[in-house]
Amino acid sequence: MDAVIHPTAVVEAGARLGKGVRIGAFCHIGDDVVVGDGCEFGPHCSVAGPTTIGTDNRFIGHCAIGGEPQDKKFAGERVELVIGDRNTFREFVTINRGTGTGGGITRVGNDNWLLAYTHVAHDCTVGDHCVFSNNATLAGHVSVGDHVILSGFAGVHQFCRIGAHAFIGMGAFVNGDVPPFVMVAQDGYGRPRGINSEGLKRRGFDSGRISAIKRAYRALYVAGGSLDDARAKLLEMAGESEDVRALLDFIDSGERPLLR
C-alpha cells in the first residue's frame, strides 16, 4: 500500500516513506527523513532530518520531531534522531537530534507512550515500554531504562540516569541518578520514597524478587550508613538476586551522584 499524503502536507524530495504511511493535513516531512511502514502523522506535525523512524509509530498532532538541539555549541554538524517501533507521541511532543560533542544521536526505543507536551532533549536515550505523562521533560544526555514512568510535570537534569522500572512522581525534579526499581516523590528536588512495587507486580515480578529489591532499597536508603557501606551490603545480596546485581551495576557505572 502506497503512502497516503494529505494535499496540504509537504514531503521533501529527500524523504523516504514506507508502505502504508499516512501523513495528515499541514505536515512537513523534511529531507533525510526515513519513515518506516505503517506510521501515522496527524495534523501539523513536522519531522526534520537526519531522522530515522521505525514501523507503526503514531504522531497524533502538532509534534515537532528531529529539530536541532537546544545547545549553543551546536554548529550545524550532522547529528541524528533514531526512533524505534510502535511508539505513540501525543500532542505537542518535541524530540531533538543529538549534538556533535554528545555522541551525535538521540534514541527512543520501542513501545513507548509520550503524552502531551513531553520533551526529549539532545543526546538522550529512552528505552522500551516507558510512559512519559503530560509535560514530563528530559534535559540533554539523560538515559532512561525500560519500563520507566515519568509522571506529569516531572523534570530530569542533564546527564542523569533513570534505571529500569523506576517511577518518578508528579512534579518531581531529578538531579541525580535514580537506581532501578526506585520510586521518587516530590520534595523540592525529588527524593526516593520506596520501590515501585505496584509497577513490578504488573510486570510479573513475583514476591521473592520484590522482597529482595525491598531489602536492597533498605540497605541503600534506610540503614543510615555511607554509600560504601550500602554497596558492601548490596554486594552480599547480589549473589542471590539478579535484580540486586543489576541495581549494584547501575550504581557502580554512574558519573553523577546517586539520588539519596
Results as ranks from 00 to 15, higher is better:
residue 2 D to W: 07
residue 3 A to T: 02
residue 4 V to L: 06
residue 5 I to K: 08
residue 7 P to D: 11
residue 7 P to M: 11
residue 8 T to S: 15
residue 9 A to M: 07
residue 9 A to H: 02
residue 12 E to M: 14
residue 13 A to K: 15
residue 14 G to Q: 10
residue 15 A to T: 02
residue 15 A to Y: 02
residue 17 L to E: 00
residue 18 G to I: 06
residue 28 H to M: 09
residue 29 I to E: 00
residue 29 I to Q: 04
residue 34 V to A: 12
residue 34 V to D: 12
residue 37 D to Q: 14
residue 41 F to I: 09
residue 42 G to V: 12
residue 43 P to R: 09
residue 45 C to F: 11
residue 48 A to P: 00
residue 49 G to Q: 01
residue 50 P to E: 08
residue 53 I to F: 05
residue 54 G to M: 11
residue 57 N to M: 12
residue 60 I to F: 15
residue 62 H to N: 15
residue 64 A to T: 11
residue 69 P to H: 06
residue 70 Q to Y: 04
residue 70 Q to K: 06
residue 73 K to T: 13
residue 73 K to R: 10
residue 76 G to W: 01
residue 79 V to R: 00
residue 79 V to M: 00
residue 82 V to A: 10
residue 84 G to N: 01
residue 85 D to C: 11
residue 87 N to Q: 07
residue 87 N to S: 13
residue 88 T to W: 05
residue 89 F to Q: 02
residue 92 F to S: 11
residue 94 T to E: 07
residue 96 N to I: 04
residue 101 T to Y: 08
residue 101 T to N: 07
residue 105 I to Q: 13
residue 108 V to H: 08
residue 108 V to W: 09
residue 112 N to M: 12
residue 113 W to D: 12
residue 114 L to W: 06
residue 114 L to S: 03
residue 119 H to S: 01
residue 123 D to V: 05
residue 126 V to H: 02
residue 127 G to H: 05
residue 130 C to Q: 03
residue 133 S to Q: 06
residue 134 N to L: 09
residue 134 N to G: 08
residue 137 T to L: 09
residue 139 A to F: 03
residue 140 G to S: 09
residue 145 G to C: 08
residue 152 G to K: 04
residue 153 F to T: 12
residue 154 A to C: 06
residue 157 H to C: 00
residue 157 H to T: 02
residue 158 Q to F: 06
residue 159 F to E: 10
residue 164 A to C: 06
residue 168 I to P: 00
residue 169 G to K: 01
residue 171 G to T: 09
residue 173 F to A: 15
residue 174 V to S: 03
residue 174 V to E: 01
residue 176 G to H: 04
residue 177 D to C: 12
residue 179 P to D: 11
residue 182 V to I: 13
residue 182 V to D: 00
residue 185 A to P: 01
residue 185 A to I: 10
residue 186 Q to P: 07
residue 186 Q to F: 05
residue 187 D to R: 14
residue 187 D to Q: 15
residue 190 G to F: 05
residue 190 G to V: 04
residue 201 K to N: 11
residue 205 F to K: 00
residue 208 G to C: 09
residue 208 G to P: 05
residue 209 R to K: 14
residue 212 A to K: 12
residue 212 A to E: 14
residue 212 A to G: 15
residue 213 I to S: 10
residue 220 L to I: 14
residue 222 V to H: 11
residue 224 G to P: 04
residue 225 G to E: 08
residue 225 G to M: 05
residue 226 S to I: 03
residue 227 L to M: 06
residue 227 L to K: 10
residue 230 A to P: 02
residue 234 L to A: 09
residue 237 M to Y: 13
residue 238 A to Y: 07
residue 241 S to Q: 11
residue 242 E to W: 06
residue 244 V to Y: 10
residue 246 A to Y: 13
residue 246 A to T: 15
residue 249 D to H: 15
residue 254 G to S: 15
residue 254 G to Q: 15
residue 256 R to P: 08
residue 256 R to V: 14
residue 258 L to C: 09
residue 259 L to D: 02
